[in-house]
């Protein structure tokens, strides 16, 4: 399969006055063309920082990539090690918006209020493609039509405040798609939307992904969204990947107690029994437990969990889990490969 992005043991730390925050602390995954990777976790687990590290959008004065690698494989040419590029240099700017595009959580604030939708889409097109203004405008109208905005010839000249939330997210998607990116990172794209709109937007993203053989990283805290779109899922907790598995395994046979907890706290139609919340709450960035970070909330906690951090145990061709409960199997850490 065509791998487009490979992240290995990525660590991004924030250096702030109060100390070091290990926002991303050992994240690995690989992404294939046409496939969807779901990143799921509660707020503060590092999923958004992961995406911004890939895009190199974090301020270098605050956040530092302390370890790991992010390899991007362009359609032609040598792979690019994204951790090594200058975050404000030409190389990353050629990739941003052009080969790796991103859509954000808040459609209400993701568009600049003083420029028209068309101006904002054309800006990306004119930046990355050598076309005339007229062609860029025509392309902007095309992508607006593609994402299902009615009367795109008129809408293109309207301002963001004239669009509803769902329409703005469509416009954001249009902007992200305007240069036919090979990877789309969607950071909670439907969290701020109504459920009916959510379904439409997810369907739209999937359809475009299918048409363009685009790789998708879907970041969300909502397992229903993951079930809808993902092929492979990584579950994050406090900056670490606790479980990585194909989507069916995650839902039918979750291995990590945290994944199990997330599923048990998920309301489902037709499910009669009471929801079981995960006890406790995510510890703050400075209260990280010594051993397994989930130990204080884990129903199966053992002495070993509090003392030692579990490595990743390989359970199948595409699944591994970081939990001492699976110690019988062969131990392989990601650093080895």
């Amino acid at each position: 399969m065509d791998t487009v992005l490979e992240v290995r043991n990525l660590k991004t730390y924030f250096y702030i006055e109060q100390g070091v925050i290990r926002a991303v602390d050992g994240v690995s995954f690989s992404l294939q063309a046409g496939k969807t990777l779901g990143i799921v976790g509660e707020s503060g687990c590092g999923k958004s920082v992961t995406s911004r590290t890939i895009m190199r959008l974090l301020s270098p004065t605050l956040a530092r990539i302390v370890a790991g690698s992010i390899k991007y494989y362009p359609a032609d040419g040598a792979p690019v090690e994204l951790t090594q590029v200058d975050p404000s240099g030409d190389q990353i700017r050629d990739i941003r918006g052009n080969e790796i595009a991103m859509i954000f959580q808040e459609p209400m604030t993701s568009l600049n209020p003083v420029y028209t939708i068309g101006q904002q889409i054309m800006e990306a097109i004119l930046l990355h493609q050598d076309v005339s203004k007229e062609r860029a405008r025509a392309r902007a109208i095309d992508v607006l039509r593609l994402v299902g905005i009615p009367l795109p010839e008129q809408r293109v000249d309207q301002y963001p405040h004239e669009f509803s939330g769902g329409m703005r997210q469509r416009a954001m998607i249009a902007m992200a798609l305007s240069c036919n990116p090979r990877i789309l990172i969607a950071d909670e794209p439907t969290t701020a939307l109504d459920v009916t709109i959510e379904a439409q937007i997810l369907e739209l993203i999937q359809q475009i992904q299918h048409d363009n053989n685009m790789a998708l990283i879907m970041i969300t805290h909502d397992l229903n969204v993951i079930g809808e779109v993902a092929d492979h899922v990584i579950v994050m907790y406090l900056g670490q990947v606790v479980e990585s598995a194909p989507v069916d395994d995650i839902f039918e046979n979750p291995k990590h107690p945290y994944t199990q907890g997330l599923l048990n706290s998920l309301p489902m139609i037709g499910r009669g029994d009471r929801l079981e919340p995960i006890i406790g709450s995510v510890p703050g960035p400075h209260e990280r437990p010594r051993g397994c970070s989930f130990a204080p909330r884990c129903p199966h906690v053992m002495d070993r969990c509090r003392a030692e951090m579990p490595p990743s145990f390989v359970l199948g061709p595409a699944s591994d889990v970081a939990c001492w409960l699976y110690d019988e199997t062969i131990e392989v850490s990601h650093d080895a490969n």
């Binding site: 911004r52 895009m55 959008l57 700017r93 050629d94 990739i95 941003r96 918006g97 052009n98 595009a101 991103m102 954000f104 993701s110 568009l111 600049n112 800006e123 990306a124 930046l127 990355h128 954001m172 902007m175």
Partner: peptide, 8 residues
């Protein structure tokens, strides 16, 4: 951030 993500 969205503007930066465009590659501007």
């Amino acid at each position: 951030e969205a503007a930066r993500a465009k590659g501007l």
